[in-house]
Design a protein around this nucleic acid. Structure first.
Length: 472
DNA sequence: GTTCTAGAAC
DNA sequence: GTTCTAGAAC
């Protein structure tokens, strides 16, 4: 199977997309004679005491999803388990998801698609002779990221050498999160790397149902966490196998919160300087919160979308229909070059914002030709959820089924909505934008008031009934 | 961003 | 009992 022309990439087109919750890096350079291979144990069934009849179907399902999401990629997944009965359980749980080539022999079993192998021993010399050397090994761990909590991980830990614990601590000084994966790369001089070709060990915090331990979960929660554990493990594997960084989600969440905390458009109060922690922003292959970056796809590839999604685009600007419109007409106007948040803006971006305003006005003029009754506002959310700078162009009827919550309402009718002219004033004056996170969060939680007559309402349904009167 | 759902509010 | 919200999960 190994090719003699070695380094030839399968494809040079680089593109990340998601499929069934997995990040898929298309066409990354995978050396043909050095496939990405992950060896991993069944998680949570020993240490975590999740019943095997519950755990195995989850494992099968996640593997199936991963394989389906990575159809034209070359890699191997190797399930390693000493206990013959457990492997047999896996075969049974997998039903007819895969066709196994033969009855279970002692060490290596190929499935029909040649992506999944079962083995008794990760360091089996005979198995290591083939071209499917395990460049990556996953090990189960606890939230303290201890490297030696299961027989399998102890074995790997012993082989890796004693400085592994130190390397884990350096890479992840904070405790791990349940369901997350923590890849640790091995130094070139490490024995396990020199002799076995193992590059990284991926530590996975898997769920525990053992009542003797303090953090045990009920079955339904353990099952959810186990799914996530396997998904994180495979996502981490795929990221590092494609030379991407993988950031476990607990650190990502921290960065996100930090980022939001930092913010505060000058308009109400300047944020304290001490809160302006600059966080480096790395490129990351993402798994779960992909939704926060969907706008990037519109901006980088607007021609790929139909006109009921992308309203208009040119070299500098993309205009899309809001996917969940909060009024009769609701669009987003975005720069095509990547700007994440309004507090990334500098004086030099004034031209860009003016262009957004000009394009927004152009849209408004066109829409008013269709319906002269509509009136519009153009502006930005102080703390947006989506990661590309986007200016809302929204008609003021707020007559739309997707407008449901207090947060929705207040985000468009309080100072949380920063009109484009207001933003331009701040940029022209101060030259930068700071966002007071607490102030804006308070606005979102404030009382419900009609934007036309200031009348106050207790619930969203009552308010929605009322604003209809202004419209009709 | 939405969806889901527990429990608060009525 | 039903409606509605708010927070977690995704």
């Amino acid at each position: 199977m190994a090719s003699s022309d070695g380094e030839k990439p399968i494809s040079t087109r680089e593109n990340t997309e998601t499929n069934a919750g997995f990040s898929v890096v298309k066409g990354k350079r995978i050396k043909l004679n050095d496939p990405a291979t992950l060896a991993f144990p069944p998680l949570s069934i020993g240490l975590g005491k999740v019943p095997i009849e519950e755990a195995m179907p989850i494992l099968c399902k996640v593997i199936k999803e991963f394989i389906d999401s990575h159809k034209d990629q070359r890699y191997f997944l190797v399930l390693v388990e000493e206990d013959h009965e457990i492997l047999e359980y896996f075969r049974q749980a997998s039903g007819n998801l895969w066709t196994f080539k033969s009855e279970m022999p002692d060490h290596c079993e190929l499935t029909r698609d040649e992506r999944l192998l079962l083995r008794k021993d990760v360091f089996d010399d005979q198995a290591m002779e083939d071209d499917r050397k395990c460049r990556f090994i996953a090990c189960e761990t606890t939230w303290r990221l201890k490297p030696d909590v299961t027989p399998f991980s102890r074995k790997v830990y012993k082989a890796a050498g004693s400085d592994l614990a130190k390397r884990i601590k350096e890479a992840y000084p904070q405790p791990g999160a349940l369901g997350e994966a923590y890849p640790v790369s091995l130094p070139p001089e490490s024995n396990i790397r020199k002799n076995k070709g193992i590059e990284q060990i991926i530590y996975v915090v898997a769920p525990n149902m053992n009542p003797a331990r303090s953090d045990h979960l009920p079955l339904d929660e353990a099952k959810k966490s186990l799914t996530k554990s396997y998904q994180s493990m495979l996502n981490a594997f795929w990221s590092v196998a494609n030379d991407n960084d993988y950031s476990p989600s607990n650190s990502l969440v921290t960065e996100h919160n930090e980022k939001k905390r930092k913010s505060s458009v000058e308009i109400p109060v300047a944020a304290a300087k001490s809160s302006q922690i600059h966080q480096p922003r790395n490129e990351r292959s993402l798994y779960s919160n992909d939704w926060s970056r969907v706008l990037w796809e519109y901006c980088s590839n607007p021609e790929a979308f139909p006109s009921d999604i992308v309203y208009h685009y040119d070299d500098d600007v993309v205009i899309t229909w809001d996917k969940f419109p909060k009024a009769q007409k609701h669009l987003l106007v975005m720069p095509r070059r990547r700007i994440e948040y309004i507090d990334d803006l500098k004086k030099s971006d004034i031209d860009t914002i003016e262009l957004l305003k000009k394009k927004g006005q152009w849209v408004i003029d066109r829409l008013k030709e269709e319906n002269a009754k509509l009136d519009f506002r153009m502006g930005f959310h102080a703390m947006p959820s989506m990661r590309q700078l986007h200016m809302h162009v929204i008609s003021q009827d707020f007559n739309a089924p997707a407008l449901k919550t207090k947060r929705h309402w207040n985000s468009f009718t309080t100072f949380f909505f920063i009109p484009v002219d207001n933003l331009l004033d701040v940029l022209r004056g101060k030259g930068e934008v700071t966002i007071d996170n607490e102030y804006y969060n308070r606005l979102l939680k404030g009382r419900l008031r009609c934007h036309r007559c200031e009348k106050e309402f207790k619930t969203m349904p009552m308010l929605k009934d009322h604003i209809r009167l202004h419209w009709e």
